[in-house]
Amino acid sequence: MRAFGPIFNKDLGQHILKNPLVAQGIEAGLNASDTVLEVGPGTGNLTVRILQQAKKVVAVEMDPRLAAELQKRVNGTPFQRKLHIMLGDFMKTELPFFDVVISNTPYQISSPLVFKLLEHRPMFRTAILMFQREFALRLIAKPGDELYCRLSVNVQLYAKVDHVMKVGKNNFRPPPQVESSVVRMEPKNPPPPVNAKEFDGLLRIVFVRKHKTLAANFKQTTVLNMLEQNYKTYCSAHEVMIESDFDIKTKVLGILESIDMSTQRAAKMDLDDFLKLLLTFNHANIHFT
């Protein structure tokens, strides 16, 4: 370790938050009874502030040098007993119970991190997550927004997501290439009774060309072939007779017509529209996984 502090590993996306005002905004809303999971604590600028407010902090750090620096920082202080450091890759780590998760997220794991958190049980109360600005804007995008995409809908199915604040690149050491934003994510509890893989399978089809009509997207040969295969597999497994004049294209377009969605476009559809679409297809024994 050099005398002027640790060398940051750009491969791990390490950018340490140095502005205390930003840290203050991130830690707002913590309770004295909270167990906080912190992803990528770095040198502990934010960790030390969280320790002052929470009951316990579990910090997951991949870099042994930064973990050692953080441990050294709290040794001999009243916070020492409240901090538990887990050394390892967050994506491969078995997570303990926590009430709140706080993360200054390396951009390489933004999407996997969000879904790992949403799948975590027992459910947590809230997540305060810092991402690259564009990724954050995708999470909160609404129908009609330019950045509205499959990610937006998948995440908003399971959580309420709000923008907390913009964070300029000069708030970090070393400064990253891009601007950042902090979002708050609150899981819906209980989660909606929707098969996540099915739902994502549907979204994959309609968001490939989000400005095209649903009919145009579903008419593609590869899509029709996949749905026909899935339909026949489902019917076979559930001993359902396949109609003698069965034609997948006629069936799919008929389903879209029946709910008046042939001319709808994914770019303008909301969560309820997608759920209605999935339910109608499933009722007709058409599945997306």
Rank of each mutant, 00 (worst) to 15 (best):
E198D: 08
R204D: 14
V223R: 03
V208P: 00
D260G: 15
V240R: 08
V164A: 13
M241L: 08
D273C: 14
F199L: 11
K268S: 15
T263E: 15
K188L: 08
I242M: 05
S152Q: 03
E239Y: 06
L214D: 04
F172Q: 04
I255F: 01
V155Y: 01
D247C: 12
E179M: 10
E186K: 08
R150D: 05
V161Y: 04
R173K: 14
V240A: 00
F207D: 01
Q264P: 00
D145K: 11
D247W: 07
R265L: 05
L151Y: 13
L224T: 10
D260E: 15
P193T: 06
M261P: 07
L271C: 10
I205A: 03
K251P: 00
K268H: 15
S258L: 05
A266E: 05
K166E: 11
D200N: 14
C235R: 05
D270T: 04
R184Y: 03
V155S: 01
D270N: 15
D145M: 06
V183D: 02
R204S: 13
F199D: 02
R209W: 07
H238W: 04
N195H: 08
P192M: 06
N154T: 10
L271R: 13
D245R: 09
A216V: 00
F172A: 02
M165E: 04
H238V: 08
L227F: 02
D200Y: 04
V178K: 11
T222F: 09
G201T: 14
G168W: 02
K232T: 11
T250R: 14
E186F: 00
A266P: 03
L224N: 05
V155W: 01
A216R: 12
D270M: 05
V155P: 06
D200M: 11
Y231Q: 07
R209N: 13
K160N: 15
V164C: 13
Q220A: 14
K268Q: 15
V153A: 02
T213S: 12
V164H: 05
S181V: 08
T250W: 00
Y234T: 11
L271I: 13
R209F: 10
R173E: 11
L256V: 01
V183S: 07
L147H: 10
R173M: 15
G254N: 04
I242Y: 00
D200H: 06
A267Y: 09
L151W: 09
Q220G: 04
A159L: 07
Y231S: 11
M226I: 00
L256S: 00
K251M: 11
L202Q: 08
G168I: 05
L157K: 03
R265I: 12
F274P: 07
P175E: 02
M261K: 14
S236Q: 15
Q156T: 02
L202N: 09
N154K: 07
I205M: 04
L203E: 06
A159Q: 05
L203Y: 06
H238Q: 10
K249F: 04
L253C: 01
V252I: 11
P175M: 04
R150W: 08
L271K: 09
V182I: 14
K276Q: 15
T221I: 13
D200E: 13
R265G: 02
M241V: 05
V153D: 06
D200G: 06
T263P: 00
